[in-house]
Structures are given as C-alpha cells and as structure tokens.
C-alpha cells in the first residue's frame, strides 16, 4: 500500500511559511511606499479628471479640461479650442533639451567610461570614485556650481575676455544653452556609470581579433566595440533622458523664469497657474512617457539575449 503522490504536510508547511514570511517581512516597506510614494499617484490620476478650483485646488466635478488643456487652450471670447502654442513650446524644449543632453553626455561619457575601464585596477577604482562623488553630490549644489562658471561675471567669461576671444561677456544664463550645459553637467555621471559597467565586461581580446582582421581603430570602434556595449549605451541613455525630461531644479536655476521645462510647467499649475487638474494631467502624461521609455529600455536589454539576424 503506497500513499498517493502528494506534497507531504511538512513540505507544504515549509513552502507556505516561506511565502508568508516573505510577504510579512516586506509588508512594512510596501505599506510605507504605498502611503508616501505609489498610492498618491492614484490621487493625481483622479485630480486630473476634476474641475479647477477658483483659488487653486479642485472642485469635485468631473471634467476633461485638465487633459484637453495639455494641448489646447480655450479662447476667452468665443470659447473655441485652439492649439496652445506656449505649451507646445515647453514640450518641444523639454524633448529637445533632453535629447541633446543625452547626445552630449554620450559623446563625452563614452570616452570617459572607456578611459576608466582601461586603467590598471587600482587607478580604475580611484577614477571610478571620482566619477561617483559628483553622482551622489547634491544636484542643487552642482547646478549652483555650474552657474558660477557660466554667469556673466563667471570664470568662463573672465577667461575668454582675458585671452581676448570675446569682446563682451557671453550672456549664457537664462537661455536654453544654460539649461543644456547644466543638465549635461549634472547628468553626465548617470551616463558614464552604466557605460563603464558594459565596457568593463568587454573582452579586450576581441580588439586584438579585430586588428588582426585588418580593422582600423575607427572600424574596430564602430564594428566591434559599439555593438557589444550597446546594452550599456541604452541604459545610460535612458538614465539620462528620463530625469532630463522631468528636470525641475536645473531649468529653474539656470533657465530663469521663462525657459521652462515640463517639470517647471507642472509646478506652475500648482502655484500661480492655479490649475491643479492640468498639473495632474501633465504629471500623469509625463509618467506615461517615462514608463514607455523604460519599456523600450527593458525590451532593448532583453533583446540582447536573442541571436542577431
């Protein structure tokens, strides 16, 4: 007489205890995150479908005005909808500056990451530490530091004037260029670190193989190195693009009041704009765009496992 094949009670108990303990131990963190991070996002979603209150906040009537307001504005006189050019300018600036930031940080970050990864081990740890310090340093402080360089009376202008390259100080502050310089400066480490991780795994013997097969340095870079470290490039680009798109501090400090990006535009709705539903709708829209970017990243990262061609 043999027992029917089933999970024994002891085994079953062990399995259930593992699941229960896993959830119980994680519960406090999950509750905290739900209260003070993820849960409130749902409220934002709700607010995006309400009517703006007169003095800020909302009144509890359903309305799509928040979502419509992202792209259109209502004419004060005849109540018709027309494209809100000011909004489009802000979106375009955000996307443009974020893409440019990504491109600049890649152009500067790739040689830097390559340089760090090809140092001898001890020196490499030091260089890596040097790139990590700015990464963890207060973003506001770093933004503030870059203003000292590019201000009208800043170091850059002083040096350029002294060597006679320019006759009058460059007026960089409060322009898109200032925001771009600032974002490239503060987000550069976010590009270098994943690139370094990818290059660090790169087998340098492949270079010997490349040169052995008659490739020039540029051909090796283009046909061997870049395709292999692609996951690092994708990771770095997303890590720079996503916070650039939602940037708030850097455009506020360097762009002055006028050169707003989406982040500042959202804040405006909760301040002087007094249009909370629009602010809420913009937040959700930004979140969706960021999530889509993440999705592309995950896709690109997992695609590496499947063979090419």
């Amino acid at each position: 007489m043999s027992p029917p094949p089933r999970l024994s009670e002891a085994e079953d108990r062990q399995r259930r205890a593992a699941t229960r303990n896993g959830w119980l131990l994680s519960a406090p963190a999950l509750v905290l995150l739900f209260i003070a991070a993820s849960g409130p996002l749902l409220i934002v979603l709700v607010y995006s479908f309400l009517t703006p209150g007169k003095y800020g906040d909302v009144s509890w009537e359903f309305s799509t005005s928040g979502w419509v307001g992202i792209l259109f504005s209502r004419d004060i006189f005849d109540d018709t909808l027309k494209l809100a050019d000011a909004h489009l300018t802000i979106f375009w600036r955000s996307v443009k500056l974020s893409l440019l930031t990504t491109a600049i940080t890649f152009a500067l970050g790739f040689p830097t990451a390559w340089f760090i990864a090809t140092r001898p081990p001890k020196a490499r740890a030091l260089w890596l530490f040097l790139i990590t310090i700015p990464f963890w340093t207060n973003l506001l402080i770093r933004t503030f530091a870059i203003t000292e360089i590019i201000r009208n009376e800043g170091i850059l202008n002083k040096v350029l004037l002294a060597i006679g390259v320019i006759a009058a100080p460059l007026r960089i502050m409060n322009t898109d260029t200032a925001v771009l310089i600032g974002m490239a400066y503060v987000y550069l480490p976010l590009m270098v670190l994943p690139l370094f991780a990818a290059i660090d795994r790169f087998d340098m013997r492949l270079l010997e193989a490349g040169y052995d097969l008659y490739a020039s340095r540029m051909q090796v870079l283009r046909h061997v190195i870049l395709p292999i470290v692609r996951p690092g490039i994708v990771a770095g680009s997303i890590l720079v693009f996503v916070p650039s798109l939602g940037a708030y501090v850097t455009p506020r400090v360097l762009g002055g009041g006028k050169n707003m990006m989406i982040g500042n535009f959202i804040e405006l709705q909760f301040g002087q704009g007094r249009n909370w539903p629009l602010g809420a709708a913009l937040s959700i829209a930004l979140l969706i765009v960021v999530m889509l970017a993440m999705l592309i990243y995950v896709r690109a990262a997992t695609k590496e496992d499947t063979p090419h061609g």
Partner: peptide, 18 residues
C-alpha cells in the same frame, strides 16, 4: 534541510519527519 514528499525519517527510533 528538506522535507520529504512522502515517507518518514527516524533518528534513534524517533519519527523526526516534520
């Protein structure tokens, strides 16, 4: 470290399965 799916383990004549 593992529990049997079926059967018993005895140590010194004592059933210690669970």
């Amino acid at each position: 470290f593992e529990m049997p799916t079926a059967g018993q383990i005895l140590i010194d004549g004592q059933d210690v399965t669970g």
